[in-house]
Design a protein around this nucleic acid. Structure first.
Lengths: 180, 180
DNA sequence: GGAAGATTGTCTGCTCAGCAGACGATCTGC
DNA sequence: GCAGATCGTCTGCTGAGCAGACAATCTTCC
């Protein structure tokens, strides 16, 4: 076809580094690697961390909501929460309004653990973004977040899961403290 | 703590949408979903596509190089290439210089298939990036690619894999187009 | 030249994550 | 009260991924 033989001057193997999908997967992989050391000690690793975050930031979601939000099978969520409960990070609390449901609430220790982990994860992220300038990082973060929102809109189990807020508790930071 | 009760005004469930890692994984997931329909008919799906791309853009890499580049176990690469060969997209060619090696080269059909798939994948990508403005998309693409490069630098099996060219063939397209 | 070690591609077997299906407990609608 | 739906749990199956072994081949060193 064209006059030039190739457009790959430097790397002999492949030019995939220009490919969007390849780059996306590469960055995702690098991210996983970067935070894995931080999250290795946590129950259920990165998944446990994200679940804990969803619980802490959320308002006592039930397991199905949690599973849908994090794109985890509900049967897997059972074991995942088993470990988180065993680690003392969250609690299963019966919902008096619907006794089939278990509202998941974070313990005080879970909240503290999350805050600590978030700090370390943030540091690992900065290490990953080291190749970008300061302002570029912020741009990338912003665009990524916006993209995630719009991308999630087109899918089921997205960002919407209505739960109402509630005050907190002594040992657990819970949505509906109720009568114990 | 603070004066404001929370910083989660809209979504009741969780605030993870602001989280970098969560957004990254969400976008990666959305990407996989978007291209999966395009790549469903290809041998070995998305992996087969990326492998085919690496082979077409590359210079007859051997399986170990390919596996390292795509972060695939070499035992898995065997089956992956089996399917690609069966689909008539690539060929295993003995390397006269080292008869342990099999240089992987794309067939004419493999090249055509890749070009066609790349067009469709590109369209799917644009659909994914629909939430961003035109110029924002380009910025995001650029930053992502740069990030992938720098992130890959810090890891083994990265972008470097020196292979030298070989003459081409009738039915297969090798790297240096030559007199074709 | 020949022996020892390394490398490539393949095959085998193990382990583990993920998912469908079934089940009891519970809620909702009639 | 009864049928159907929903939540959380358990069981069993399937498939992917990886370590290990193997033959063929190359390289290094004696």
């Amino acid at each position: 076809m064209g006059s030039e033989p190739r457009t790959v001057p430097v790397t002999g193997c492949a030019d995939l580094a220009e490919d969007f999908g390849f780059s996306l997967m590469a960055v995702a992989h690098a991210y996983r690697t970067a935070v894995s050391s931080v999250l290795a000690g946590v129950a259920q690793g990165a998944r446990g961390f994200q679940t804990l975050a969803a619980v802490v930031e959320g308002d006592g979601p039930d397991q199905v909501t949690l599973a849908g939000y994090l794109r985890i099978d509900r049967t897997v969520m059972t074991y995942l929460l088993d470990d988180l409960v065993a680690a003392g990070l969250v609690e299963r609390r019966l919902d008096p309004a619907d006794r089939r449901r278990r509202r998941i609430v974070a313990t005080r220790r879970g909240v503290d653990t999350l805050r600590d982990l978030q700090r370390q994860v943030r540091a690992a992220e900065d290490g990953l973004l080291f190749g970008l300038e300061e302002d570029e990082r912020e741009v990338f973060r912003t665009l990524l977040v916006r993209l995630a929102r719009t991308a999630a809109d087109g899918e089921p189990g997205g960002p919407s899961c209505e739960v109402d807020a509630d005050p907190c508790d002594d040992t657990t930071v819970s949505p509906a403290p109720g009568p114990g």
